[in-house]
């Protein structure tokens, strides 16, 4: 396995998309605090801190992870180099895990590129995070890293089992967008108010409060519980919650992500073990 890791990391160093992705995350990390700072200067009512926009990277991490895994692992099939590893006697489990580890490491590097760039440009403009919010920030960051492993594990499984690079790219990229859009939909459904405030206009022309009207679209009972579970469980929903810093069940979400990572890797290894390689 160490030989494969060594070979994969050497290939990562020469991977064009990885470097483009890293530069993109650095530029994003610099631009977000700078634009927020200028917004704050332009509109006096708008106040921003270092926390605003910090977790935007979770969305880009998910998308770049899908693109990176499909290209990095997909190349093994499109260029036929997967055969070189198998012919030389490496076990399929080692090949699978080496690809997963290197992909996860690459996604971590992309995240850290953003975080470092963000802090370097944001701290001089806004100062550091407030001391009391630091544990929360660290909790969100930890949760986002576990989530990145889960997304990488899913994309690696797709890339290892689908022997056509183009199909892998379509499945992974389309899949992650569908998951994120579904996350946004679930978030909006759960965020609906239970009651609408109502007002009535008196004879004297003045508006007065009336009894609130129940919202018919509000999710109640078992349906709400199912939606809440999905919202914490699915990676796309976690992306939405973490990027908006609205997550409340960080431990639960991290546990679900770990579960997804382990089960998708287990299933992927089993199926890859039986796969006929062309």
């Amino acid at each position: 396995m160490s030989k494969l890791l060594h070979a994969n990391f050497a290939r990562l160093k020469q991977d064009t998309f990885f470097w483009i992705g890293t530069v993109f995350m650095i530029v994003l990390g610099i631009l977000i605090p700078v634009t927020q700072y200028f917004e704050m200067k332009k509109y006096e009512w708008y106040t921003a801190t270092l926390t605003n926009g910090f977790f935007i990277y979770v969305v880009f991490m998910a998308i770049l992870s899908a693109v990176f895994c499909s290209l990095f692992t997909g190349t093994e099939y499109s260029d036929g180099t997967m055969r070189n590893k198998l012919i030389t006697g490496h076990s399929r489990i080692d090949i699978y895990l080496a690809n997963l580890i290197v992909s996860a490491a690459a996604v971590f590097i992309l995240c850290f590129a953003y975080i470092l760039a963000y802090l370097c440009s944001g701290i001089p403009l806004f100062g550091f995070f407030p001391k009391e919010s630091l544990p929360v920030i660290l909790g969100f960051m930890g949760c986002s890293f576990v989530l990145s492993v889960a997304i990488t594990a899913i994309c690696t499984a797709v890339a290892m089992l689908c022997q056509t690079k183009a199909n892998t790219a379509v499945i992974c990229i389309l899949g992650i967008f569908i998951l994120i859009f579904f996350g946004a939909y679930t978030d909006s459904q759960l965020g609906m108010p239970e009651y609408y405030d109502t007002y009535f206009m008196g004879d004297d022309g003045e508006a007065s409060d009336a009894a609130p009207i129940p919202n018919p679209g509000y999710l109640r009972g078992t349906k709400r519980e199912v939606f809440e579970f999905i919202h914490d469980f699915l990676p796309g929903n976690q992306v939405v919650q973490l990027s908006a810093m609205s997550a409340t069940h960080l431990w639960k979400m991290s546990l679900y992500s770990a579960l997804i990572a382990v089960s998708s890797t287990g299933l992927g290894v089993c199926l890859f073990w039986r796969e006929d390689i062309k």
């Binding site: 160490s2 030989k3 494969l4 060594h6 070979a7 050497a10 290939r11 020469q14 064009t16 190349t75 260029d79 036929g80 180099t81 997967m82 055969r83 070189n84 590893k85 030389t88 490496h90």
Partner: peptide, 20 residues
């Protein structure tokens, strides 16, 4: 089976690494 984005030498180096 070769990495198309690598030179001949880099391809061989990669295979050397795979073989340890």
């Amino acid at each position: 089976s070769l990495y198309l984005n690598m030179t001949a030498e880099d391809n061989l180096k990669e295979q050397y690494r795979i073989l340890g």
